[in-house]
Nucleic acid binder design. Structure first.
Lengths: 340, 340
DNA sequence: CTGTTAGCGCTTTCAG
DNA sequence: CTGAAAGCGCTAACAG
């Protein structure tokens, strides 16, 4: 039913077509229908359909200062955790007419800063971010420009912002205790660089605490590794396996899903059987885990829920909620399989 | 160094602050620096820094009709294939100053339509889409409004649009032949509903062709399943396993990564050993596959590259390339492991 | 080299 | 109930 038009119809054309002023069309668009005479409503509706008109978000936005855009800034969208979160965010965005701009930072503060500026230029109304923690100044700028920010997963000390996290300490304690209960006397924590990243710090500290408590004599073994450096990781795994002679069963706790994948890869290469030669468990659950080896025991974070909750917080803020920033802590869940 | 400002600085404020007209600031922003006296350049630069000014994409966009926004519309971003593609798209977007709006359709034509309208309202300049094929009219509208569209993975008959695909037929033939070569006499294809989705059609037809050729007596066995319906899938797998009595080795070809995951899950539940009881291979490669069972043989699509190429096409179009729409076919690669 | 002016598509008083 | 007019932040002639 649509005519071949060369470019978008504007409100003016609709107005002309319908024989009314653009104010009236604007009213129509904005739902103030019962303030318009029925006859005009009909002709406007008709005109809109015939011209296949859609109001321009840009023009609307420029006028009312609302872009209907939400930024989603993560280290790496390739990470299943991030994708699941994104879906959660999207779910509530759809309900409220927002669209999502996704950006990756690759954990680089510079790239993060750049992306933040880009998002800012687009007048995003909200931002959900898994931050490097190195761009607090830009974040503050955004705040002062009225964009609502919610931190997911990673909190930033000194930044009083809404945040959605999981009970990292608890769940880490749980799993480390489980390891000791199962007779693993050497448990090593493999993690990406800890400093400044709150969940890593929380997990490392919980690990250390339990390790100290349960195995008084032994120094907790934390391996800070670079997921990207396969060779180095292999070395670390080997060195852990060789540590402490042959006494005692060994288990690895992996700090995130991607790292787990790489570690398990190393184990395969080395030819270490799970759980006979090493036990393993770690954060982030995916459907694959049950299919690998004996099934990998994991800590499932409610990532989809986290995204949802984060975005809901933003919606609230955008609706005018001015209450003090809050940290919403969701519960991660232990998924017991047979790798321990 | 930034003052506490309550909202974004505008070009007017910068102009005032620098003691020049906003045209000059505009010139500065747009890089026409050597058309401005050095003194003013300095003061503008200073003003911009002090006010922490970023030009509004919305205002710029409204004026020049360029949003710098690219839509990325996929069935499900949760699918590893989609994420990898997204990263490819992003890579070239970054290089050219574009931002990406991601939307999921869940394979629903209605949702796709809705998303398309939403993206349209945001004046996206380009669209990369994995389409349901049911909204060609909207796609045509977009075209007529000068948005550059590239289809990824799925072509649409009758729509002359740029497309980026893989050599589905070839690679399917290859793997099916390999199956027969390895002595599997019953090979079944598991796929989501085929009709209207080009890669599925191509794969199914290549499969059928080879199956007919290599195993004259037997009717090709195609199972069209719903990935979401676990129970039904389990039934299909069982029925395939039970088919044709006990004569001959059986192998499953899975049409995409997600489906493969579900099928392998079923196999585990049934207790069928890979490859002793059933061989299996399928599309889409992820790092997990090497860790599952004996290592799963897959067809790796160059998804990252596909995203890159698709976005490069868009950039070309946006730069004015008016040549006839082309289909760029990339090569998928067989990754041999031990599930066959 | 630089300021003035008009206007992108829309919303929002303000009269009527 | 409805239209005229002003203006959101920016760019693009057009004079000077």
């Amino acid at each position: 039913m649509k005519d071949k038009q060369t470019s978008k119809a504007t409100i003016n054309e609709v107005a002309a077509h319908a024989g009314v002023s653009k104010s009236t069309v604007s009213r129509y668009i904005n739902g103030k229908i019962d303030a318009i005479s029925p006859g005009k409503v009909k002709s406007i509706k008709k005109a809109i359909e015939e011209l296949n008109y859609r109001p321009s978000q840009m023009a609307q936005g420029l006028k009312v200062k609302k872009s209907k855009l939400i930024g989603f800034l993560v280290a790496d969208i390739t990470n299943p955790f991030s994708v699941a979160t994104l879906r959660g965010v999207e779910e509530v965005c759809d309900q409220h007419g927002y669209s999502i701009m996704v950006c990756n930072t690759d954990n680089s503060p510079e790239k993060e800063r750049e992306m933040l500026h880009k998002l800012n230029a687009h007048y995003i109304e909200g931002l959900i971010i898994n931050t490097t923690g190195q761009n607090n100044d830009v974040l503050m700028d955004l705040i002062s420009q009225d964009v609502s920010i919610v931190l997911v997963d990673r909190k930033v000390p000194g930044l009083k912002l809404d945040a959605v996290t999981t009970n990292n300490r608890e769940v880490t304690s749980q799993i480390v205790n489980l390891m000791y209960d199962k007779g693993y006397s050497h448990v090593g924590l493999f993690t990406e660089p800890i400093t400044g990243i709150s969940p890593r710090e929380e997990r490392a500290s919980a690990y250390t605490e339990i390790a100290l408590e349960r195995n008084a004599g032994r120094i907790p073994q934390i391996y800070e590794v670079d997921v990207k450096d396969k060779a180095a990781l292999l070395q670390s795994v080997k060195s852990f396996l060789a540590s402490g002679g042959d006494r005692g069963k060994k288990a690895i706790l992996g700090n995130n899903g991607l790292l787990m994948l790489k570690i398990i890869s190393c184990l395969y290469e080395i030819g270490a059987a799970i759980p006979e030669d090493v036990g393993i468990a770690g954060f982030d659950d995916t459907e694959w885990y049950r299919l690998i080896g004996p099934g990998i025991t994991t800590i499932a974070q409610p990532s989809h829920e986290m995204g949802k909750v984060a975005m809901e917080r933003i919606v609230k803020r955008l609706e005018g909620d001015e209450s003090a920033p809050q940290t919403i802590q969701l519960e991660a869940e232990l998924v017991l399989r047979h790798s321990l």
